[in-house]
Design a protein around this nucleic acid. Structure first.
Lengths: 261, 261
DNA sequence: CGCCTATTTGATCTGATTCAAACAATGTGG
DNA sequence: CCACATTGTTTGAATCAGATCAAATAGGCG
């Protein structure tokens, strides 16, 4: 599926100033939750990154791979997923610009899941060696990236709760809440409207549902007056209502400031 | 539920030599996946830990808490869980001796889930400050603990796949495989028999099933000749068969040696 | 226009839940 | 040491949320 090239760039507030380097993006990202010293900023600034463009629906990392660099998503939308023997797919996370979806591979050499673009995306590849020497120089930065992977895990836990214990309606609403909050945090939406390049099958595979049931559930959510969703754009009509419906409590996203360490 | 006091200590191979300190346990744990230098061992050896005993079914950390120390499970069995508005529970992980179930709180100040003992357990509490200064002294140790939290996350992903995309029978079999492998790794089972202090309700809440259905599924697994399970003891009668039934591929546990960093 | 992919609708089926009650095991206090 | 309370397991029956199968419709693109 093509979602009208450059889907994410037409939200008005684009994440990246076109002149910004990947390193600058990382600085900006980390500074959302922690103060950086000048030294730390400098060290980040010296990170070398290779820019890569990928088409939509392209595997960036495959299960079994041994990546040698970390992927920073600059622009676009990705997901991680696993396949089950009978061909079923479970999406374990969605990723938006500023995310480092395969940071875990820095310490877990063999990837245990796939990483794939959902729309044409811009990546920055940073060599593992460069990351490790950055951490060597500035151990505190390691802690900030570590924190990032911990938030990742917190999101996994929350998804598990949804898949295991919440009804379809709630699950879908919850997912939308999460994505809106995360996208707002990186400036991909000021109002409650986001570019969301997900097919109903993607949503189904993320929430452990069938496509047909997602379709019906979306109709319910729409007719409850909570959202509009069409052609890759999600508009939340009633934020409070959607949060209630989704039992959405954003504390698990740990958006508050990190402890000073 | 009491499962006959000291359930885990009667497996013959107990994890802890009674004389072993928590720090020594950590050394042993980390050395399963990485080489430690003498300095690193020393630094770990100087960690101060407070031993704590807790009864069965006691919350050790609650959602919303701001723990100031990290819990090392010395003996016993714990789980992390979240509650949903209507009272449903989702268990997100089980923990065995050697695990540090609330290590994430070191960088995520507010706990987003509960940690609770399933049997009477022995804990060692290590102050966050002590962990941080350990990492300051020996940054490489931070990477090893980081790796540990990444494996945690890998397990979450695998559970998500199970809950979202596998049938009940497969899910239960998979859980048993995982627990057996993990317990073997820490010496809590040499054969394919483990002390497993889980009620059917616990299993249900971990797998996103109802207790009744778990009961029926267990009967199926038993009558397929794969396991025996009663009074807190799981005996695998056909390991190959159980792995097949559970579609269990242990790569996600990342038991292979860490990259030298 | 025609192809391909996504969405939608309808009909049917089923794995799993829920409710309710009996049964078994373990622990407790008199 | 037994009676009772508590907690966990098992069984049966009814129901349902969500899956599956199949086919029609709608959008976007070359």
């Amino acid at each position: 599926m093509e979602h009208g090239g450059g889907a994410l760039s037409c939200t008005g507030t684009s994440l990246m100033n076109k002149s910004e380097t990947p390193a600058e993006l990382l600085v900006r990202k980390l500074e959302r939750t922690a103060e950086l010293s000048g030294r730390q900023r400098d060290a980040l600034g010296q990170l070398e990154a290779v820019r890569v463009s990928v088409d939509a629906h392209t595997d960036i990392v495959r299960e079994g791979d041994r990546p040698t660099s970390v992927t920073l998503l600059l622009e676009g939308f990705c997901c991680r997923y696993k396949l089950v023997t009978d061909g079923k797919r479970q999406i374990t996370s969605f990723h938006i610009p500023g995310d480092l979806p395969d940071l875990p591979a820095l310490f877990l050499s063999v990837a245990d899941h796939n990483l794939c673009s959902l729309v044409p995306s811009q990546l920055a590849m940073i060599a593992h060696a460069a990351m490790l020497s950055l951490f060597h120089e500035q151990p505190r930065l390691a802690h900030l990236f570590w924190r990032d992977t911990l938030i990742d895990a917190a999101v996994f836990r929350e998804w598990m709760v949804g898949i295991g214990r919440r009804a379809a309606f709630t699950r879908v609403a919850h997912l939308f809440c999460e994505l809106v909050v995360r996208m707002q945090a990186v400036g991909l939406s000021s109002d409650y409207s986001v570019e969301l390049p997900l097919t109903q099958t993607d949503i189904a595979d993320a929430l452990g549902l069938s496509t047909v049931h997602v379709n019906r559930t979306l109709q319910e959510i729409r007719s409850a007056g909570l959202i509009k969703l069409s052609r890759g754009r999600l508009v939340v009509l009633n934020w409070e209502g959607l949060c209630d419906a989704g039992e959405f409590e954003q504390s698990y996203l740990h958006r508050q400031r990190a402890k000073a360490v």
